[in-house]
């Protein structure tokens, strides 16, 4: 081709060829700039001593003082430990669960059964934590709860689950699984629907059995989604789910159940310490950020799938 294009370097050439694609992305990035990046200036108050009387602009700079105060806070180690343990458990057990659910659903013959189960598992997602908790309270109650009635019948001692430091974390993890799994199962089911049916048929012709099909077709079929979701979930490692903990916990279990989000709520919303909680938020996000970059790098090497 003759003309100006020939003078372009290869990058410019590629740019020119895909300029429309580029501007398409750019137009949406403008939205990101306005609604996501402009508000970021507020995070600077993590390095200020924010005071209402001076507002954002005039509040004095204090460098890393807020972060220092954070790391010296006697509560901080406790909430960090609790957050890591609870979130870790949620990832270890709660993350694979919807995948298993999707794989199982995928092997069901009867379409009516499959659809019913799939709908049913989605339903708890709509029940707010307030109501879900009230049901949990009545199931787990040491005096009248179904579970404890059963335990007593079997000759055991009733357990005060929600005031028990031993049981509180498992209850958070299990109730999270039963309430939220259906939501993520939808993503995996959608991904599975995109796997070419002919591959399944070919496998059957080759005499692959059920387990081989799951291992060699189903799982690789959703592996890219699993990878992405896993990386993103790691980015939220220090996020446990505020509402759930806030509604279920009580001072009885602060030692094992007080997490960064509930701590942050008490400091920020109730205590009005915006600089302090912003510093905490930045700390939390930075950890997530590092984890995303690292896990993306590792998984990209291992599986070939990644965020970028």
């Amino acid at each position: 081709m003759q003309g100006p294009a020939s003078r372009f370097s290869s990058f410019q050439k590629q740019f020119w060829k895909n300029r429309f694609l580029f501007f398409m992305a750019l137009s949406i990035l403008a939205w990101y700039a306005i609604f996501r990046y402009i508000p970021y200036y507020w995070n600077l108050i993590a390095f200020k001593d924010y005071q209402y009387s001076m507002g954002f602009a005039k509040s004095p700079w204090v460098g890393f003082e807020n972060f220092k105060a954070l790391f010296q806070d006697p509560f901080f180690l406790r909430v960090l430990r609790n957050t890591l343990v609870i979130s870790g458990l949620k990832i270890a057990i709660g993350f694979p669960f919807p995948i298993i659910l999707a794989i199982f659903l995928n092997e069901v013959f009867k379409s009516a059964f499959k659809k019913t189960i799939q709908t049913i598992t989605f339903v708890p997602f709509f029940i707010s934590w307030v109501i879900y908790a009230s049901i949990l309270f009545s199931v787990l109650s040491p005096s009248v709860g179904m579970l404890n009635v059963l335990i007593s019948r079997l000759g055991g001692e009733p357990i005060y689950f929600l005031a028990s430091e031993k049981w509180f974390r498992p209850i958070l993890v299990i109730s999270d699984i039963t309430k939220q799994s259906g939501y993520f199962t939808v993503i995996y089911m959608a991904a599975l629907a995109g796997v070419d049916e002919e591959i399944f048929e070919a496998a059957i012709c080759d005499g692959a059995n059920l387990f081989q099909r799951i291992w060699h077709i189903t799982i690789p079929g959703i592996a890219p989604v699993i990878t992405i979701l896993f990386i993103l979930r790691l980015g939220q490692l220090l996020t446990v789910g505020f509402e759930q903990v806030y509604i279920l916990y009580s001072p009885m279990v602060y030692d094992v159940g007080d997490v960064i989000e509930t701590f942050n709520y008490r400091q920020g919303i109730l205590g009005g310490r915006f600089s302090y909680t912003t510093a905490l938020g930045l700390f939390k996000s930075s950890i997530g950020f590092v984890l995303v970059i690292a896990s993306n790098w590792v998984l990209k090497k291992l599986t070939g799938h990644g965020l970028w």
Binding site: S141, S143, Y160, L162, A163, S250, M252
Partner: peptide
Amino acid sequence: PESLTLDWNQ
């Protein structure tokens, strides 16, 4: 015995 965790309604 459940006083340690009761909310208002309960």
